[in-house]
């Protein structure tokens, strides 16, 4: 009897010891549609997929994604992977891109103007909503494109920080279009796609053209996962997951309405 117990215990202990280490992910606990604490974002879903594929259990370190995020997460060794960084990112080592999206013009389907490019003369008179990150005067490309054209008098800014004490802190700019506070907004694709489906009025999304407004104002971005610089082993494994599971990943993104180009 005792010997059976001991063997079982030993086996259990061995099994536990042999467990692979968790896949530690750093993510924003309140940033739909990307991620939240309840695992409802598409980056959460993709992280589930990756962990399953690697045969590891998933664990999270939560931190709002602000200035200093990589320094305080990946580089502080609180996690091993961040689910999304621009593929040209230098602060972390990006994997291969797993999707490519674009900033879109957002307007009301019934009455809104259909804008395709920043050269559209209507932009000088329309009320325009843009996202603001404000990080040392840097802002998403819409801000720059308007500034360069001296379109400044009719702009309404919506910080990406929003009201962090509420859920969906980034939906403000989309609600502004639906409610008629602005005529058109320029929003990063995944945000626009997700909140358009939940908007109070039907909205149209139009990818910004051309893909880049001058060399320093691209509107399309490749998105990769990010690991610590030097963590080539994990990066290679993630690259393989991305290649092998391309179709599944696309399906997840499509289900969230992410415009892919």
């Amino acid at each position: 009897m005792f010997s059976v117990c001991r063997v079982l215990l030993a086996a259990g202990a061995l099994a536990a010891a042999a467990q692979p280490p968790a896949l530690r992910v750093c993510a924003d606990p309140n940033n739909m549609p990307f991620s939240n604490e309840r695992g409802e974002g598409f980056e959460n879903r993709i992280a589930d997929l990756v962990a399953r594929d690697l045969g590891r259990r998933l664990s999270y370190f939560w931190l709002p994604q602000r200035r200093g995020f990589i320094r305080n997460t990946l580089n502080a060794n609180r996690c091993d992977v961040v689910m999304a960084v621009p593929s040209a990112f230098e602060a972390a080592r990006p994997t291969l891109p797993y999707y490519r999206s674009t900033y879109v013009f957002v307007s009301r389907r019934d009455q809104g103007p259909r804008i395709r490019s920043f050269d559209d003369p209507r932009l000088t008179t329309l009320r325009i909503g843009i996202q603001l990150t404000g990080d040392d005067y840097d802002n998403p490309p819409a801000a720059q494109a308007l500034a360069v054209r001296h379109i400044t008098q009719n702009i309404h800014g919506y910080t990406v920080y929003g009201d962090y004490s509420a859920s969906d802190p980034q939906r403000g700019v989309m609600d502004a279009v639906a409610d008629g506070a602005v005529d058109v907004a320029v929003v990063w694709g995944p945000l626009a796609g997700f909140f358009a489906r939940r908007a109070r009025a039907p909205l149209t999304l139009t990818p910004v053209e051309p893909a880049s407004d001058g060399p320093s104002r691209p509107f399309r971005f490749d998105i990769s996962m990010g690991v610590r610089r030097g963590d080539d082993a994990l990066r290679e494994r993630l690259d393989r997951v991305i290649a092998d599971r391309r179709a599944e990943i696309r399906r997840i993104l499509k289900s969230f309405g992410v415009p892919m180009v």
């Binding site: 994604q65 990112f89 990150t133 040392d136």
Partner: peptide
Amino acid sequence: EAIDANYIAGTPYLGADV
């Protein structure tokens, strides 16, 4: 000069490299 890819709250952009 502006050349750095950056990412805040899930929103990508090119930021100034200072």
